[in-house]
Write a protein that binds this DNA or RNA. Structure first.
Lengths: 336, 336
DNA sequence: AACGTTCCCGGAAACGATTCCAGTTCTCTT
DNA sequence: AAGAGAACTGGAATCGTTTCCGGGAACGTT
């Protein structure tokens, strides 16, 4: 069934039906009602392809996700999907291989699918303006970093917590509880992703409290927040030293892996080592011991990403939203 | 840039370019090469909307997911996405509200987006043929059940483990280790979903071993494999009786929640209670104690779903694939 | 009563591909 | 060498919308 059938049934032209369907003002109330009821009654659904063709754009929004093991993003994708749907957009999801180039992937996706916009979930984002020019549609970066400020704030939007500050607060919390020797597990200290920001926050907290960062207490665990790599990293750290009372880990799942390594080495959490992380996954409330973690407002981040993208599409206005992470005290930390 | 530009540049007609692009045989090798190189050089990307319009179909496959908290599906979605992409399809993901009707959602999705096919992840599937007739495209059900056999096997395809058998093997494993009083946490014993099959498997194992199922050892935990509900259910069970040495839970995440409840009640896993589950999530290898679980081959299930759907689209052939779950022994079970 | 506005509506040209149908050329057979 | 058939190509219709443009009716103004 096409728009023509509806037009015929109502005794009007296709133009008029189209106008009704698109909420154009120039149509009388009587006709509008007649068309609408015919559409309802016959269960007519417009053909998106035809619409997209003539408008030379679609209602699809790309979501490019980096980090396969990242449960935090799984939660966000759900709300992003819902929000997009609610606003009449379609989500085109794309998972990135760990070493893939998100901007290039986005650009390809955009041209193939005629995307309206893009949402990047995680990843490095130290691209130059020239590289980003590849992306011809508005985009918002979520949980990303822009360490070197190579991006002009007017070119894109972003949503994230303040990763530096959040990490700092986590570590300060440990310090307030009396911890002095605080180890850290970091995927990579200089990959221009949130890892770097969070690591810097860790350093700031130490330094501002007059503690000297000890390189021996730092272990890198590979770039992707994966549990096996983190477990191994923790084992390496333990092989080197046990002279620390607390551990700072950049994500919940990796913290869980780290706790496992600690237990496997006969160290108990929190009696021997306190553990704190960033993410706030649901499952972290159910592991033993429950994880103390800085909760990122996943739903809100998803909602905001979509809201901001929609705003960009309508008004062109970019926006940079920083949300607050909140401490959730579990049983994995105790004072010394 | 359109197909016309390529045609002009090569001095051929648009029909010819189209034929080259669609691998039609009737085109000379010389022309084919010329067109292809022009396409390559100019970076031409066909307009999907136009193609879809004239073909009156798209290359989109819908994936309808039930169960918001289900981490097992998160893993599967990733492989499904990759596999679909690899075969030239686009994934349209749709998360179901807990009480929504998957078939209706699929049908709407299908008509709005002109889907080629559908993949259902989880959910009740006790629809009548009449209801399923709403779905006008081939579909495969993944991790579902068809308890009452209302579906004709020729109408659809499916991929799953043998849920009854897997549950039975899990419980038999406990029995072999000497457990006699085995409690169970079940989302819902008669919701026509995999819960029911797995629960029946639990019963079969008991009965076949000459053990009498004790209703006091069964607790329902709401329909959706959620951790909070499961935690509460476990608490209710413990409030009623502690006369059991093992616990069977239907999914990993809910098992983790149950273990938490046990610990919170002063019962240790596995010293006081052994726990076994079904799923095989990565994170289950890192919780303390590591969870003993029947591992569903998530990747394989995702791959098979896509493969089978593609086959249905090409040949119309339906297929029902049962994959094997394998026991992964953790530290949450011990013999008595 | 004539004219200018405003309000609705219909006709028709796009949008960019696919595909059927009808050539044209080329090859091969007799 | 002529005719049949195969191989290749171009023209044109088509898919279902949106939107521009223009026309007619109704209305108010002078």
């Amino acid at each position: 069934m096409t728009i023509k059938d509806i037009a015929r049934e109502c005794g009007v032209s296709v133009s008029t039906v189209s106008r009704v369907l698109n909420n154009h003002p120039d149509v009388s109330e009587a006709v509008r009602r007649k068309v609408l009821s015919a559409v309802e009654e016959r269960g007519y659904i417009p053909n998106n392809s035809a619409r997209d063709l003539v408008r030379s754009r679609s209602d699809a929004v790309g979501v490019v996700v980096r980090g396969t093991g990242n449960l935090f993003f799984s939660a966000m994708i759900k709300t992003i999907s819902r929000q997009l749907e609610q606003r009449g957009y379609t989500m085109v999801l794309h998972f990135l291989d760990s070493d893939a180039d998100e901007v290039k992937a986005g650009a390809i996706l955009e041209r193939e699918k005629k995307l309206r916009g893009l949402i990047f979930l995680g990843g490095r984002f130290d691209y130059t303006s020239a590289e980003l020019a590849l992306v011809g549609v508005p985009y918002v970066c979520c949980s990303y970093t822009n360490v070197f400020g190579s991006l002009d704030e007017g070119e894109y939007s972003s949503v994230s917590i303040d990763d530096h500050e959040t990490a700092r607060r986590a570590v300060e919390y440990l310090i307030r509880l009396g911890h002095r020797r605080i180890a850290a597990l970091v995927p990579s200290v200089d990959d221009h992703s949130i890892s770097e920001l969070r690591y810097d926050g860790y350093l700031s907290a130490l330094i501002d409290s007059g503690l000297e960062p000890d390189p021996a207490l730092l272990e890198e665990t590979g770039g992707c927040f994966e549990m096996p790599e983190t477990y191994e990293g923790m084992c390496r750290l333990l092989g080197r030293t046990r002279d620390f009372t607390a551990l700072f880990v950049l994500s919940d799942t990796t913290a869980i892996a780290a706790m496992k390594a600690l237990e496997d080495h006969g160290l108990h959490v929190p009696e021997d080592v306190s553990v704190i992380a960033i993410d706030g996954l649901n499952v972290s409330e159910y592991v033993t011991p429950t994880l103390t973690t800085m909760v990122q407002p996943a739903e809100e981040m998803g909602r905001e990403s979509v809201r901001i993208l929609a705003e960009m599409l309508e008004t062109g206005q970019t926006r940079h939203v920083r949300l607050e992470a909140t401490l959730r005290e579990g049983a994995s930390v105790r004072s010394v």
